[in-house]
Design a binder for these strands. Structure first.
Length: 772
DNA sequence: GTAAGCTTTCTTTTT
DNA sequence: GAAAGCTTAC
């Protein structure tokens, strides 16, 4: 799903606080808060650390404090709030605005703050203002080239690892020189050769990687005292959420901005630090009181989310960590049902067990689909779940970090866009120069690269001179020049709206025609492209000044997580990482097996193991009322089926009655025939829908004849079941666009995934209770 | 120079 | 199981 500005992706559900049209009084701002929450809200000057356990009302506190500061007369431009995701930023902004209409508070992630900062202070940071942001796959490509430049063999030096090492160096604010100076062992010394080569390549392409977005501002502030003082005075009040997941560069950024005006208010929970792999350092929060003298520490210990049993189980688990501040967690909630630890035979029965439990709850009218979440350690584990949910026709949404922009056709289209916006972007050039096929092969490109390197040109510039490059055959040279001219001609599109640029680009470069020519299966690809164009159009409509560069920036910082919609009537499947900050009445955590959670890479390292434990803790504490933890005795993974060992974390849970162990030997007898998997099994299964839908509820369970109903395009929604003349019944897994442009991605039992234009495809909505 | 088909490799989490 | 890399046949 393509989502841009978080502001319009999700109409935020506002907190229970009343909406004021006059500035709210202090009394009303503090209404319904506990003592410690109040203290946090009315903390004004000086550093403060708010240790906020799961479900402790953190968001409420932050929102109200921001509003409180404004009511104290602090001008909004002096406040900077940093959140962990774009989505969180959008919601925070909206919440504040709801309490105080007309406010435009600066709420961003560290990365988007970095981008704004660098556009404004480009000279001070020593970069070109028109920079482009490279994602991790661009970064990897660049690393490969850099390894070549540095004369290192990329088979011996894994580009992934080198790239990770460079990223780590930047997170630690080590310049290439500083890194080389401290490199001791052979490996680091080799990285020290690749790092400057990589930087040089980035600079030539006028690109920054994700780490630069933090590294460069932090360095600029460190090296430029005048700039630092100016910024310190500009943002007098700084608030950082999820502080436990800050890395050193982020730490430094906050530190520099809070010297003359040390009003740094951080909120976090050391037990929920789960981003070490990205450079987060849990010590940032553990040492906060030491780093900021005079710091006021506020503990939000009360949990308003989970039942006693869930809390007890989570607490028992996390108390096995050594690197933490012990804390007492309490709740006034009832004891609730025991946390269930369930053993299944294999991953299919596990997935079906979850699906059936959900189905039963829904059919009994006890819950609605959105009450459920299934959490996994990694994305690869979602397949069995997906199949089970389809089999039992339970609407679900899989929330993946990146999916949409990772698709090949979208990456290609974006590469074209990037190339007209920034002709120096060599990575994009290489990506599209022969896409569609133009008769420009590997050897020809190598000649162009050599020419470019010798003359310090970008690849596109070199391509323009292809006639003069020795070694190129006449035909190749012609094709290359033609390509260069074409892009040169299309460059002015970069100043216009992004969707128009995309349409024209894909047309003129022949990309669209090439896609159209391919066989049926590739209609997906076209559909994806059209979705990208729709997204670009939406972006352009937000603000007439939104051009190609703005669109590119927006998508490089966006993730599909931002599009996650809690109000949708479907079960949520996501990773435990993605679930941070969310809550669900019922949570299932699956595949809790040694090697998966805790992940095998953490088994021999105590610190990593503690991180896995925190991850498990985060997952468990998402649950409000019911929590089921499960594993399968037999699991197929990496194409091999192996006997598993239950997660060692099970041994760290409390005894009954808070936790109950359940054996699900095999499958339930009536469900055990999926191995034969007749389409019949599927057809016989009633569709699961929340019975609250009044119009449909009365027919549920009856055998009323199937009355086909043509769906208007806009009626088709994600999660719905539809019938197609050829492919049978399937579930809409994704829907986007509107009217004639509305596109639906449908997963069919037998035909797999297909994409249709809703207005063209002959689809009928299948309603609950209808047989067919 | 290209496309298809084969083999090998490598598996976490995401701004 | 998928993606990237490699080989082979046009």
């Amino acid at each position: 799903m393509a989502t841009f500005s978080p502001e319009f992706s999700n109409p935020p559900e506002f907190s229970s606080a009343p909406i004021f049209h006059e500035p709210p009084s202090e009394e009303s701002l503090l209404e319904g808060l506990t003592d410690s929450q109040r203290q946090a809200v009315i903390h004004k000057d000086g550093p403060a650390l708010v240790l906020a356990g799961p479900g402790s009302g953190k968001t409420r506190v932050i929102t109200r404090r921001l509003v409180w500061l404004l009511t104290q007369g602090i001008p909004e431009h002096q406040i900077l709030a940093i959140t962990f995701t774009n989505k969180a930023a959008g919601e925070m902004r909206a919440r504040v605005e709801a309490l105080l209409p007309g406010t435009r508070l600066q709420v961003s992630t560290f990365h988007s703050f970095g981008v704004k900062f660098l556009r404004q202070y480009a000279e001070q940071a020593g970069i070109d203002r028109g920079f482009l942001i490279y994602d991790q796959s661009d970064r990897l490509r660049m690393t490969k080239t850099a390894l070549e430049d540095a004369g290192l063999d990329d088979t011996r030096f894994n580009p992934d690892r080198v790239s990770a090492a460079i990223s780590k160096a930047k997170n630690m604010l080590l310049s290439p020189g500083a890194y080389a100076a401290q490199a001791q062992d052979y490996w680091s010394k080799q990285v020290a050769l690749a790092y400057p080569a990589y930087q040089k390549r980035l600079k030539q392409a006028n690109a920054l990687d994700f780490d630069d977005l933090l590294y460069l501002p932090a360095m600029a502030l460190r090296q430029n005292a005048e700039l630092r003082a100016r910024c310190d005075a500009r943002w007098k009040y700084l608030l950082v959420d999820e502080y436990q997941d800050t890395n050193m560069a982020q730490y430094a950024l906050a530190r520099q901005l809070c010297q003359d005006h040390p009003n740094l208010f951080v909120v976090g929970d050391p037990d929920q630090s789960i981003y070490k792999f990205r450079g987060s350092d849990i010590r940032n929060i553990l040492d906060f009181e030491r780093d900021y003298s005079g710091c006021k520490t506020i503990l939000l210990g009360a949990n308003h989310r989970s039942t006693q049993s869930i809390l007890k189980a989570a607490d028992s688990l996390i108390s096995h960590n050594r690197q933490r501040k012990p804390k007492v967690q309490t709740t006034h909630n009832p004891k609730g049902r025991p946390v269930e630890v369930v053993a299944y035979e294999n991953q299919e029965s596990e997935a079906e067990g979850v699906a059936l439990r959900i189905r039963d709850e829904i059919q009994a009218g006890r819950r609605s689909l959105r009450d459920f979440a299934v959490l996994v350690r990694m994305n690869a584990l979602t397949r069995a779940l997906e199949q089970a949910f389809i089999k039992y026709r339970i609407p679900f949404q899989i929330v993946k970090g990146l999916a949409f922009f990772e698709r090949k056709e979208n990456k290609d289209a974006v590469a074209y866009l990037r190339l007209i916006s920034n002709p120096k972007d060599d990575v994009s050039f290489l990506r599209v120069v022969n896409e569609p096929a133009r008769g420009i092969g590997k050897t020809s490109i190598e000649h162009v690269e050599a020419h470019a390197r010798a003359r310090d040109l970008s690849l596109l510039e070199a391509a323009g001179q292809a006639e003069f490059i020795p070694g190129l055959t006449g035909r190749a040279a012609q094709a290359i020049v033609k390509f260069a001219r074409l892009l040169e001609k299309l460059r002015p599109l970069a100043d216009g709206p992004p969707h128009e640029a995309l349409i024209k680009l894909l047309d003129e470069t022949g990309y669209k025609a090439a896609l159209k020519k391919t066989d049926d299966a590739d209609q997906d690809h076209l559909a994806n492209i059209e979705e990208l164009i729709t997204a670009a159009r939406q972006f352009a409509q937000l603000d007439p000044s939104n051009n190609v560069a703005g669109f590119l920036e927006n998508i490089s910082l966006a993730s599909d997580l931002d599009g996650f919609n809690t109000s949708q009537e479907s079960v949520t499947i996501m990773t435990m990482h993605a679930a941070k900050g969310l809550e669900f009445p019922v949570v299932f955590m699956v595949a809790l097996e040694q090697g998966l959670l805790p992940h095998e890479r953490s088994l021999d390292n105590e610190l990593e193991l503690e991180e896995e434990r925190r991850l498990c803790f985060v997952g468990m504490t998402r649950a409000m009322q019911e929590l089921q933890l499960s594993y399968a005795r037999l699991r197929e993974f990496r194409g091999r089926t192996t006997y598993t060992v239950p997660s060692s974390f099970f041994d760290e849970l409390p005894p009954p009655p808070d936790v109950r162990k359940i054996e699900r030997g095999g499958m339930r007898r009536d469900e055990s025939d999926y191995s034969t998997d007749h389409p019949m099994d599927y057809e016989d299964t009633p569709i699961v829908m929340a019975p609250s839908r009044s119009a449909t509820a009365k027919s549920a369970g009856s055998s009323a004849p199937f009355t086909p109903r043509a769906g208007e395009p806009d009626e088709l929604r994600q999660g719905m079941f539809v019938a197609h003349g050829e492919y049978g019944v399937g579930q809409i897994v994704e829907a986007s666009g509107n009217g004639a442009l509305r596109k639906v991605r449908i997963r069919f039992q037998t035909a797999g995934l297909k994409v249709f234009l809703a207005s063209k495809a002959k689809l009928t909505i299948v309603h609950p209770g209808e047989d067919f």
